[in-house]
Design a protein around this nucleic acid. Structure first.
Lengths: 242, 242
DNA sequence: TCAAAAGTGTTTCTGCTACACCCATGC
DNA sequence: GCATGGGTGTAGCAGAAACACTTTTGA
């Protein structure tokens, strides 16, 4: 591709203003789990286009903030959480995906512990937000259905070979919670004994001296993810896989 | 993030021009294999910044072409190839990665059969291009070393669970070529018998009635990748893995 | 005492790894 | 006839899958 116009003043340099500049947004698909169900946070658009429809939270990228920080600030704005797991998903740049003109969207996805998230604002109509089952959302604005789809698929793949499932659970959890989480995201049932054998055998869980209280059945032990142990193992070539 | 200025004319719509617009390039890391060595195509920059240094081919994204088509046209421009494997890698958007100002780069990588590529232009100094061993390039402009690194890593991972290695080989190849390709990219040696057993057992290779000619040893049989067989198997839940 | 989930071992089967020799061809 | 790479089978082992009963607790 050649520049639209040559720059007479600086014949040996390429200037940014020689080229058209598309608009860019950073959007963030926020996932959480409640009652073993994968959920996603959506916002209702307060302005045209697609006013009144549900969308993935996002905002335009300024010139003074990195892409990831832009996504992270969306996350903080909607949930109050500053340090959640965040990963770049894909960049969408097809023509015609925004009726106003050329818009690129750099999509991220994030995993949060729902109990830690601030309640979503329902009063302010301009920023109405709500949690939906990730597998059954209302129709979405723009090409956001495709973005969500890709995010779900990425999560399904990634959760099998990186220990990111823990990001969706409370710090202290019970093995059955972990198993249900995996079953929900992988969309198939797992054998209880084999699951426990495998995950405990990895040595990346800390068994806590604490049990469930007031449950109408034998109380289960709490565990937490042992980040340091995982790092140590990874250095020695250990690969998480489930 | 709130718009820098409110739009009086259209209070209920969000206008693209309300926001600053970064420049965006689409760059394409082109991989090929020669003599079992993974190589990458680089171009020497003819303009400032980084004039005279080697870089990953790329160009600014116009408003009239999709991201992928922009990457694809770079590919065609440098190699003459129109239909190679192309995959989006990552979008780089850190501040300060271009001394001229805010530039985002949507990076792609591509796998091509080197024999099919047009010879690279060495005469025209403004678009000098050359193949380098992917593991030992000269210093690169911008943050392109990081981009190349990520591309190599992605290729290493992806080649193990998707049948994309074939994109780097001629249509007709010999099993030893395939094995050498994997050994080169995975950077470890593989057992000949186990490799053959595994790959032939998948049923995604067509054995051709053709053998090497004029080789100073027993002539090896040619094979080709059977795309249809692979698609059929994939539908039934088969997963390529090596 | 009942309902509900926690916790625990063994056997079977599958698939990976390791390994060595004869064959065909050109020079 | 020699150098070079092509082509082949088997035994051992590790890890995955299948599978059922006893324990603890609150109501």
């Amino acid at each position: 591709m050649t520049p639209p116009k040559a720059s007479a003043a600086t014949p040996n340099a390429e200037r940014l203003t020689d080229y058209p500049q598309p608009s860019v947004t950073a959007d963030c698909v926020m996932f959480a789990v409640e009652s073993s169900e994968l959920q996603v946070l959506l916002v209702r658009r307060g302005v045209e286009p697609y006013k009144g429809e549900w969308a993935i939270p996002g905002g335009f990228v300024g010139v003074e903030m990195s892409l990831e920080d832009t996504a992270r600030s969306k996350l903080r704005e909607k949930t109050g959480i500053a340090d959640a797991y965040l990963e770049q998903l894909y960049t969408f740049g097809d023509l015609g995906r925004d009726p106003r003109g050329r818009v690129l969207t750099v999509a991220y996805f994030s995993l949060i512990r729902k109990p830690e998230a601030a309640p979503v604002s329902t009063s302010d109509a301009a920023s109405e937000a709500a949690w939906f089952p990730a597998a059954a959302t209302p129709a979405l604005a723009f090409d956001h259905a495709r973005i969500l789809d890709m995010a779900r698929q990425r999560l399904r793949n990634k959760i099998r070979y990186e220990p990111i499932g823990f990001e969706l659970l409370p710090e202290k959890f019970v093995l059955t919670d972990l198993q249900r989480l995996y079953e929900g995201i992988l969309e198939r049932e797992l054998d209880k004994r084999n699951f426990r054998k495998k995950i405990l055998g990895m040595g990346i869980l800390k068994a806590l001296d604490e049990k469930q209280q007031n449950v109408p059945h034998r109380a289960a032990r709490f565990y937490s993810f042992d980040q340091e142990a995982y790092e140590r193992l990874k250095e020695r070539g250990f690969l998480f896989e489930l």
